[in-house]
Design a protein around this nucleic acid. Structure first.
Lengths: 147, 147
DNA sequence: GTCATTTTGGATATTAATATCTTAATTTAC
DNA sequence: GTAAATTAAGATATTAATATCCAAAATGAC
């Protein structure tokens, strides 16, 4: 929707790592299995995350990946930018007009700008620690409901 | 961003029609040229718009297309839904979790819901008449600036 | 040092969106 | 009625995203 499926996979993998921060390393295949992500595809994403220093990876037997900094210090937006690349310098016009800036704005420009900013704030405020905590809670809620 | 490039093209074409409502018909090729849209590609989109009764099309010499109702009564969201299809019944989770509803929500669910609603409102409020008016104004502004 | 394991990296495949090309059907002008 | 113009429709091509496959490099276990 606002980011690629690749970025979505990456976010899921990072949540997994945040949830398992106590374990020294996690195998990519384990995460792929857990979230139903194509293993080899996730491997590539993981390489990108490593290049952006969001995770550390270790090869060979007992190898795996882990977060490169505290979950609290990793924001969703960091992951998205790492995978999808940063947003373009010149923001695209929502209805595709060539000329659309704050000065000469298309009819949707200002409203759309606010929405974009809201998205940016949402993804910028949300850190992995909080995400992981909430997801654990959610899982407990679910278990409570179904039993 | 929130809709496909096809939908963007369709919106542009509809704006053109709204701007030229006084003319009885407009050729698809004319619009394609004006907005730099691949002609044959736009032709297909136009067919879809016609099937959704947003425009009327006329074949043969002196043929062309025109809006099927007053520009005021056509909203951007109508065009987007016509081209991209309506939104899915079960909204997808932003971070791709299988289970994510109002009851059992992912950490971003509620905030994201608000943003989605804002987008829906923006595209639902914006009608073609207003769009066309504003774009004409914008064009005049531009002309005033550059001369 | 050999072997199993795991990430890395490159090559290839599939799919969906976008784009192009060609022919058919329709309508009007003459 | 014939020719020109225009949309309709189907076939094909290109591109980008997603997915799969296979060999290489690295690491630890023995």
């Amino acid at each position: 929707m606002i980011y690629s499926k690749s970025a979505e996979y990456a976010i899921q993998a990072m949540i997994y790592l945040a949830e398992h921060q106590d374990e020294p390393k996690t195998m990519v295949s384990k995460i792929a299995e857990e979230y139903n992500i194509p293993v080899h595809f996730l491997s590539k994403l993981v390489q990108t995350l490593a290049k952006h220093h969001l995770i550390k990876s270790y090869r060979g037997r007992n190898g795996g990946i882990k977060l490169n900094k505290p979950a609290r210090d990793i924001r969703v937006i960091d992951i998205v930018y790492a995978i999808d690349g940063p947003p373009p310098e010149i923001e695209m016009c929502v209805i595709g007009l060539d000329e659309c800036t704050d000065n000469v704005a298309c009819p949707l420009h200002n409203n759309w700008k606010i929405i974009k900013e809201n998205i940016r704030v949402l993804l910028g405020h949300e850190n992995l620690e909080h995400l992981a905590e909430e997801i654990i809670k959610k899982r407990e809620d679910l278990r409570g409901e179904t039993i």
